Amino acid sequence: MIKNEKIKANEVQLTGLNGEDLGIMLTREALALAKQHKVDLVCLSLMTSPPPCKLIGAGAAREEAQQAKKKADKSPDKRKVKEIRLHLQMEDHDRDVKQSQAERILKKGDSVKLVIQVHGAKEGEAGKAWAEELCKALKEHGTKTTGVQVSGKQVVVQLDPPN
Protein backbone atom coordinates (compact mmCIF):
# COMPACT_ATOMS: atom_id res chain seq x y z
CA MET A 1 0.00 0.00 0.00
CA ILE A 2 1.48 3.31 -1.12
CA LYS A 3 0.46 6.30 0.94
CA ASN A 4 1.26 9.96 1.65
CA GLU A 5 4.73 11.17 0.58
CA LYS A 6 5.57 7.83 -1.08
CA ILE A 7 3.18 8.65 -3.94
CA LYS A 8 5.48 9.88 -6.71
CA ALA A 9 2.90 10.94 -9.35
CA ASN A 10 2.49 14.66 -10.08
CA GLU A 11 -1.30 14.45 -10.25
CA VAL A 12 -3.85 12.11 -8.63
CA GLN A 13 -7.55 11.33 -9.10
CA LEU A 14 -8.84 12.03 -5.59
CA THR A 15 -11.80 10.52 -3.73
CA GLY A 16 -12.87 12.16 -0.47
CA LEU A 17 -13.57 10.69 2.97
CA ASN A 18 -17.25 10.00 2.18
CA GLY A 19 -16.60 8.59 -1.30
CA GLU A 20 -17.22 11.87 -3.15
CA ASP A 21 -15.15 12.51 -6.28
CA LEU A 22 -12.83 15.50 -5.77
CA GLY A 23 -11.38 15.31 -9.30
CA ILE A 24 -7.81 15.45 -10.53
CA MET A 25 -5.43 17.59 -8.47
CA LEU A 26 -1.72 17.97 -7.80
CA THR A 27 -0.31 15.45 -5.37
CA ARG A 28 1.02 18.15 -3.03
CA GLU A 29 -2.50 19.70 -2.85
CA ALA A 30 -3.99 16.29 -2.06
CA LEU A 31 -1.37 15.76 0.68
CA ALA A 32 -2.17 19.18 2.16
CA LEU A 33 -5.87 18.27 2.16
CA ALA A 34 -5.09 14.96 3.88
CA LYS A 35 -3.03 16.70 6.58
CA GLN A 36 -5.79 19.27 7.07
CA HIS A 37 -8.32 16.48 7.76
CA LYS A 38 -5.71 14.44 9.72
CA VAL A 39 -6.05 11.38 7.46
CA ASP A 40 -3.86 9.47 5.00
CA LEU A 41 -3.71 9.78 1.24
CA VAL A 42 -3.70 6.20 -0.09
CA CYS A 43 -2.95 5.20 -3.68
CA LEU A 44 -5.40 2.51 -4.86
CA SER A 45 -3.69 1.50 -8.12
CA LEU A 46 -0.61 2.42 -10.12
CA MET A 47 -2.04 1.00 -13.36
CA THR A 48 -3.73 4.22 -14.52
CA SER A 49 -2.56 7.77 -15.03
CA PRO A 50 -3.31 9.77 -12.95
CA PRO A 51 -3.44 7.12 -10.20
CA PRO A 52 -6.69 6.93 -8.19
CA CYS A 53 -6.15 7.94 -4.57
CA LYS A 54 -8.43 8.09 -1.56
CA LEU A 55 -8.49 9.96 1.74
CA ILE A 56 -8.70 7.33 4.49
CA GLY A 57 -8.30 7.47 8.27
CA ALA A 58 -5.00 5.91 9.42
CA GLY A 59 -6.49 2.86 11.14
CA ALA A 60 -9.10 2.34 8.43
CA ALA A 61 -6.49 1.89 5.68
CA ARG A 62 -4.69 -0.81 7.64
CA GLU A 63 -7.96 -2.53 8.53
CA GLU A 64 -9.13 -2.42 4.89
CA ALA A 65 -5.88 -4.08 3.74
CA GLN A 66 -6.23 -6.82 6.38
CA GLN A 67 -9.83 -7.54 5.35
CA ALA A 68 -8.80 -7.81 1.70
CA LYS A 69 -6.03 -10.25 2.68
CA LYS A 70 -8.44 -12.38 4.75
CA LYS A 71 -10.89 -12.51 1.87
CA ALA A 72 -8.13 -13.60 -0.53
CA ASP A 73 -7.02 -16.33 1.92
CA LYS A 74 -10.52 -17.83 1.95
CA SER A 75 -10.79 -18.14 -1.82
CA PRO A 76 -11.08 -21.72 -3.16
CA ASP A 77 -7.75 -21.61 -4.98
CA LYS A 78 -6.03 -21.17 -1.59
CA ARG A 79 -7.37 -24.56 -0.46
CA LYS A 80 -4.79 -26.74 1.29
CA VAL A 81 -4.12 -30.30 0.20
CA LYS A 82 -3.59 -32.59 3.18
CA GLU A 83 -1.96 -35.96 2.53
CA ILE A 84 -3.04 -39.09 4.38
CA ARG A 85 -0.73 -42.09 4.06
CA LEU A 86 -2.17 -45.59 4.28
CA HIS A 87 -0.84 -49.18 3.99
CA LEU A 88 -2.68 -52.26 2.78
CA GLN A 89 -1.59 -54.18 5.88
CA MET A 90 -3.37 -51.73 8.26
CA GLU A 91 -5.82 -53.04 10.85
CA ASP A 92 -9.51 -52.22 10.37
CA HIS A 93 -9.54 -49.82 13.31
CA ASP A 94 -6.60 -47.86 11.85
CA ARG A 95 -8.39 -47.68 8.49
CA ASP A 96 -11.48 -46.26 10.22
CA VAL A 97 -9.37 -43.66 12.01
CA LYS A 98 -7.76 -42.54 8.72
CA GLN A 99 -11.18 -42.37 7.06
CA SER A 100 -12.55 -40.18 9.86
CA GLN A 101 -9.47 -37.93 9.54
CA ALA A 102 -10.23 -37.52 5.84
CA GLU A 103 -13.88 -36.67 6.65
CA ARG A 104 -12.80 -34.05 9.18
CA ILE A 105 -10.37 -32.42 6.72
CA LEU A 106 -12.99 -32.33 3.94
CA LYS A 107 -15.59 -30.81 6.30
CA LYS A 108 -13.07 -28.10 7.21
CA GLY A 109 -12.85 -27.16 3.52
CA ASP A 110 -9.42 -28.54 2.60
CA SER A 111 -8.59 -31.19 0.00
CA VAL A 112 -7.39 -34.69 0.88
CA LYS A 113 -4.79 -36.71 -1.00
CA LEU A 114 -4.99 -40.38 -0.10
CA VAL A 115 -1.71 -42.24 -0.68
CA ILE A 116 -1.83 -46.04 -0.25
CA GLN A 117 1.57 -47.75 -0.08
CA VAL A 118 1.70 -51.02 -2.07
CA HIS A 119 4.32 -53.59 -3.13
CA GLY A 120 4.00 -55.10 -6.59
CA ALA A 121 1.25 -55.43 -9.18
CA LYS A 122 -1.05 -57.68 -7.14
CA GLU A 123 -1.14 -55.26 -4.24
CA GLY A 124 -1.58 -52.42 -6.72
CA GLU A 125 -4.95 -53.83 -7.77
CA ALA A 126 -5.97 -54.35 -4.12
CA GLY A 127 -4.86 -50.77 -3.35
CA LYS A 128 -6.91 -49.44 -6.25
CA ALA A 129 -9.98 -51.32 -5.04
CA TRP A 130 -9.51 -49.95 -1.51
CA ALA A 131 -9.08 -46.41 -2.86
CA GLU A 132 -12.37 -46.79 -4.75
CA GLU A 133 -14.05 -48.00 -1.53
CA LEU A 134 -12.72 -44.99 0.37
CA CYS A 135 -13.97 -42.63 -2.34
CA LYS A 136 -17.45 -44.18 -2.10
CA ALA A 137 -17.40 -43.91 1.70
CA LEU A 138 -16.34 -40.24 1.53
CA LYS A 139 -18.75 -39.43 -1.33
CA GLU A 140 -20.99 -37.15 0.76
CA HIS A 141 -18.00 -35.16 2.10
CA GLY A 142 -15.98 -34.78 -1.11
CA THR A 143 -15.61 -35.64 -4.77
CA LYS A 144 -12.72 -37.14 -6.70
CA THR A 145 -10.60 -34.54 -8.45
CA THR A 146 -8.28 -37.07 -10.03
CA GLY A 147 -8.85 -40.65 -10.98
CA VAL A 148 -7.27 -43.41 -8.93
CA GLN A 149 -3.63 -43.44 -10.04
CA VAL A 150 -1.58 -46.62 -9.59
CA SER A 151 2.14 -46.01 -9.99
CA GLY A 152 4.79 -48.44 -8.81
CA LYS A 153 4.72 -48.46 -5.03
CA GLN A 154 1.67 -46.32 -4.37
CA VAL A 155 -1.96 -45.67 -5.24
CA VAL A 156 -3.01 -42.01 -5.15
CA VAL A 157 -6.39 -40.26 -5.33
CA GLN A 158 -7.35 -36.68 -4.43
CA LEU A 159 -10.71 -35.60 -3.02
CA ASP A 160 -11.99 -32.01 -2.90
CA PRO A 161 -14.78 -30.76 -0.64
CA PRO A 162 -18.05 -29.77 -2.36
CA ASN A 163 -18.28 -26.05 -3.18
Rank of each mutant, 00 (worst) to 15 (best):
L114P: 04
V97E: 15
A121C: 04
T143L: 11
K144C: 12
V156L: 10
Q66P: 02
H37Y: 11
L138Q: 08
Q67W: 12
P162D: 06
Q117K: 13
P52M: 01
L33E: 12
Q66S: 11
L88N: 04
I84H: 01
V39H: 08
P76R: 13
E83R: 12
D94K: 06
G142C: 07
A65S: 11
G57C: 01
Q149P: 05
E140Y: 03
D160N: 12
V118T: 14
Q66R: 10
K98E: 14
E133L: 08
A9I: 04
A30C: 01
Q117E: 14
N4E: 11
T143N: 14
A131S: 09
V115D: 09
G124Y: 12
E132Q: 14
K74F: 06
G124P: 00
Q13P: 02
R62S: 08
L106K: 05
S100D: 15
A58R: 14
C43R: 11
L26I: 00
I24W: 03
M25T: 10
R95G: 01
K144Q: 15
L22H: 04
D110W: 03
D73Q: 15
P51M: 05
T15V: 11
K98D: 09
K139S: 14
V148M: 07
T27G: 01
L31S: 08
S100E: 15
S49Y: 10
V81W: 10
G142A: 08
S111C: 11
G16M: 06
S111I: 06
P51K: 02
K136A: 11
K80F: 06
N10T: 13
M90Y: 06
R104C: 09
V157Y: 09
A34N: 04
K78G: 07
Q154N: 07
I2F: 01
E20V: 04
K71C: 00
G120F: 05
D160V: 05
K38A: 07
E103V: 10
G23S: 04
I2H: 07
T15F: 15
A60W: 05
Q117V: 09
T143W: 00
Q67N: 08
T143R: 09
G152A: 14
E83K: 13
S100I: 01
P52R: 02
E64C: 03
K136E: 15
L17W: 07
G57R: 15
A9N: 06
N163I: 07
E20A: 04
M25Q: 10
L44F: 08
V156I: 12
C135V: 14
S45L: 03
N4F: 01
G142P: 09
E11L: 10
W130Y: 15
L44D: 04
G109I: 04
C135R: 13
A61F: 05
Q154I: 02
D110L: 05
S151I: 08
N163V: 05
V148H: 07
G57Y: 03
A58W: 10
N10F: 00
G19E: 12
G147Q: 13
